[in-house]
């Protein structure tokens, strides 16, 4: 069996989500990767990768030629894998359409070469599914697979040509507008720091900012904090707000009402800081600190 992983490159480095996909692909035997545009060198240094296929003329910003190329080279592979990112979810299902297979998105666990676990109903249930397709097209949830390291491998790099790209009926990229805010978007942030009613007012809510800056974190809020006017509604994390699953979630002065937990319980590591040892947030936190947030926050800021 051989797996092919579509890599995403950011600033010359392989994105962490893609490195998780490479780690997951290891379950299927030999791992090749495909790089569109720049970044083949970084890809070649990933441990566990045998071959880097490099299509320099293409870009992962356009699904139509990318999927067409993948379909062209798919026949040598049993599994074609991407990260469950906006890019992966744009390209891989299109590839599945070209191959006439049913894609398996958001895989969180691999039971065997045909059997996968994926969340349904916004993570309220986990389905174990078996695929009968000869080529499995899969996207991988990064949070569930430890990424391979960025360095340590020495794969060969082979250029692949895709001459038919100009004949694909494709959209055209006009402009890219990466978020200029220093802070990442809540839903895609690697780290989220959220505040609750314990912050007492909108002014204190700003205490989260310097820590968020140091961690490159997005800032969230509980519904109670939003309802009290400490933070705007778009910051609300929870059942009625945004659902997040970052690597690290820091809950500050929020009790952990069940509506809030529903929006963040899939985070990989949860830290809770609250004065009330009975707060429900401690029942889901990996690390808890019963302390006054007004002394903890400045300490944390200087310790980071």
């Amino acid at each position: 069996m051989t797996a092919l992983v579509l890599l995403e490159i950011e600033n010359g480095a392989v994105r962490q989500a893609s490195r998780s996909a490479v780690a997951a692909a290891g379950a299927f035997g030999t791992v090749d990767v495909l790089v569109l545009g720049h970044g083949a060198e970084a890809a070649a240094r990933l441990p566990g990768v045998t071959r880097v296929l490099h299509a320099e003329a293409l870009s992962d910003a356009l699904a139509e030629p990318a999927a067409a190329l993948l379909a062209d080279i798919a026949s040598g592979y049993t599994h074609i894998i991407g990260a469950a990112t906006a890019t992966g979810k744009n390209i891989l299902p299109r590839l599945a359409g070209l191959l006439d297979v049913q894609p398996i998105p958001d895989v969180i666990a691999i039971n065997d070469a045909d059997t996968f676990i994926r969340p349904i109903y916004a993570g309220n249930a986990l389905a174990t599914v078996r695929s009968s397709d000869s080529i499995k097209v899969i996207t991988i949830r990064g949070a569930n697979f430890d990424p391979v390291a960025s360095e340590g491998g020495a794969a060969t790099v082979e250029a692949v040509a895709f001459n038919a790209a100009s004949q694909v009926n494709a959209a055209e990229l006009l402009s890219v507008n990466l978020s200029t805010s220093e802070r990442p978007e809540l839903e895609s942030a690697r780290v989220v720091i959220s505040g609750g009613k314990g912050l007492k007012d909108a002014e204190n809510f700003k205490l989260l900012e310097p820590i968020a800056d140091k961690l490159g974190a997005a800032i969230g809020a509980s519904r109670a904090a939003v309802d009290s006017g400490f933070a705007p509604n778009e910051m609300q994390v929870g059942q009625t707000g945004k659902i997040v699953a970052p690597e690290l979630y820091i809950a500050v002065g929020l009790s952990g009402a069940i509506q809030h937990l529903a929006g963040m319980k899939d985070s990989r590591v949860i830290v809770a800081i609250n004065l009330d040892p009975e707060a429900p947030i401690f029942r889901v936190a990996d690390y808890g600190l019963v302390a006054d947030l007004f002394t903890v926050l400045p300490e944390l800021e200087s310790a980071l």
Partner: peptide, 23 residues
């Protein structure tokens, strides 16, 4: 159908972790 659902389960509930003493 190309996928067969073998089972559906509830996600495991998170377990409480450790309480720490300092930043």
């Amino acid at each position: 159908s190309r996928l067969t659902t073998i089972s559906v389960a509830e996600p495991a509930e998170r377990q409480a972790g450790v309480m720490l003493n300092s930043v």
